[in-house]
Computed example of a mutant assay.
Amino acid sequence: MRLQWQKLLLLGVFGIGLTNTLVYVAVRSTTATNAVILNSATPMMVLVLGSLYFRQRLSRRQWAGMGLALAGALLIVLKENLLGMSHFQFSHGDLLVLAAGLCWAVYTLGLRTLLPGLDPLVMMMVLLLVGEAILLPAFVAETWQAGGFHLLSGPIMGCLLYLGVFPSVLAFLMYNRAIAQVGAAKAAAFLYLMPAFGALQSILLLGEDLRWYHVAGLAAIFSGIVLGSLSRGTVAATPRPPTELSAAK
């Protein structure tokens, strides 16, 4: 791990320290719909940056699958208002959402540059420590402005515990593992499942009605992921010289 501390530092900055923070700040000055729509550009950023940095050639089938999944995600977000994009208004918060997507793309591709042999739990601990060190000054400043620490209620503590365990640590561990198994491009395509799962949870947990655009959007997303996964255009991680591999063990 000592040979890769600089890479881990950058991954902690972009993946833990910046991505979610930029989104949380962005939603203060933009709508949730705008945030979801612009966040849908993240998988495309992964493909474009991957093709530039790793010089990988992507097949037409892979681009078509990504486009189909994107169309399904937008259909769910825009619901029946298919012309809603024409009323899209750009704000300062929207730029932050795009910046967050770019940070996540850098994090996703950065995982491919790590040498093998690094324990996933150790790597996750290092990334979290780096991210927390970056966010600590902002946390102290907000706590000071709020008048110090306050005792939180049980439900709020439960929500914070859920956010800290499931969407944070476990999600990162599984995503990191997915990158190692199937590559950045294929793993990034599954990000389109976030609006799909959000719609399903709204139906199951909040009692919202199941509409045609939910079914059509889910079908498009899953079809696009399958189409992209069947593509042979994804290039495996860049091979490493034997000297580097032996040094990493």
Results as ranks from 00 to 15, higher is better:
M44S: 14
W104L: 13
R112W: 02
V27C: 00
F139Q: 09
I76R: 08
A146I: 00
V169Y: 09
N39H: 07
S40I: 03
F166I: 11
I76M: 13
S223T: 04
E208I: 12
Q89N: 15
Q56W: 07
W5Y: 02
G101K: 07
P155H: 14
V235D: 03
S29R: 02
A247M: 02
L102A: 11
R2P: 00
V23K: 04
W5V: 12
L75D: 03
G158D: 05
L96Q: 11
W104F: 15
G198M: 01
A171R: 05
R211Q: 13
F88P: 15
A236T: 08
A236Y: 05
Q181D: 08
L10N: 03
F54E: 09
L68T: 02
N176A: 12
M66Q: 11
L49W: 05
I16Q: 11
F90M: 12
H214L: 04
A138V: 11
F222L: 15
V235C: 09
L128H: 08
S202V: 07
L127K: 06
D119I: 02
E244F: 06
G84C: 01
G148Y: 09
A178C: 10
A146E: 11
A171W: 03
L9W: 10
G117R: 14
A64Q: 15
L227P: 07
L22G: 06
P239W: 01
K249Q: 15
A138M: 11
L98C: 13
K249V: 10
L136Y: 12
V215E: 06
P120V: 01
S168G: 03
D209N: 14
L152T: 00
S29H: 10
A184Y: 00
A180Y: 08
P137H: 05
S168M: 05
G65S: 11
A64E: 10
L75N: 09
L200E: 04
K79W: 02
L115V: 06
S29E: 09
M124C: 03
Y192T: 04
A105Q: 03
A248Q: 10
V106H: 01
I76Y: 00
C159N: 14
F54Y: 08
Q56Y: 05
G50S: 00
L245Q: 14
G183H: 01
A180V: 08
L200T: 07
